[in-house]
Design a protein around this nucleic acid. Structure first.
Length: 202
DNA sequence: AGCACGATGCTCT
DNA sequence: GAGCATCGTGCTT
């Protein structure tokens, strides 16, 4: 039996999915090899009324995937050089999604270091602590870019998907404000829709 | 640990 | 043309 999360997992409110994704395993089978990490930070974006969401202006060519069915990847390009990965949640026509902001490497860490090694001036890999601790860092480490936009993570042949994994022992979850919303009006700016999985004893 | 800054190109006004 | 769901560097606490 497969440990892959089914579409029904994502066919729930984005806030529920964002919390439920913590501790699950994000997997990309790249060139026949598994690159995988434990999801440690997520963020929920709640549709057109959420003034921090890319769905705010209504349906455009950029955000169209968010209007489709749940379980699909919404991958966007930002700041001239970075890709970020979301998973669409809830039913068709409801443009909600969860941004994956950080993972902890569990499989293929050597490949992740190589994929990240052109990110600094020295050309060497970044320190372990900063390998996959940001939304654009994890996409770079997993080899995810704009070609993945609109892919179905729940299809049987999917090479990008999420596997069910038990929460680490002693894991704690915290909720805080979403990151990087410097110009977003209240109350959206301060809503605690960012979720983090903390290692024990934090 | 926490700022300020520049890189770089797409999206929507 | 303004702003951006960011990152790495370099500097200050």
């Amino acid at each position: 039996m497969s440990r892959r999360l089914a579409r029904s997992f994502f066919d729930r409110p984005a806030l529920v999915v964002a919390r439920a994704l913590l501790g699950q395993r994000l997997v990309h089978v790249r060139n026949g090899r598994r690159l995988a990490g434990l999801i440690t930070e997520t963020e929920a974006y709640l549709g057109e009324a959420d003034l921090a969401s890319h769905a705010r202006p209504g349906r455009t060519s950029r955000n169209a995937v968010m209007y489709g069915p749940p379980g699909f990847a919404y991958v966007y390009f930002t700041y001239g050089m970075h890709w970020c990965l979301n998973i669409v949640t809830e039913g068709e026509g409801t443009p909600t999604a969860v941004l994956l902001r950080a993972i902890a490497p569990v499989e293929g860490a050597a490949t992740m270091r190589r994929l990240r090694s052109n990110s600094n001036r020295r050309g060497g890999p970044p320190p372990e602590k900063h390998l996959t601790d940001g939304p654009a860092k994890l996409t770079q480490a997993l080899g995810i870019d704009g070609r993945f936009n609109g892919r179905d993570l729940c299809a049987p042949e999917a090479r990008l998907f999420v596997e069910r994994a038990g929460l680490p022992r002693g894991a704690r979850v915290t909720a805080g404000p979403r990151v990087g919303l410097n110009h977003t009006p209240e109350p959206w700016r301060s809503q605690r829709w960012n979720f983090r999985l903390l290692a024990d004893g934090r």
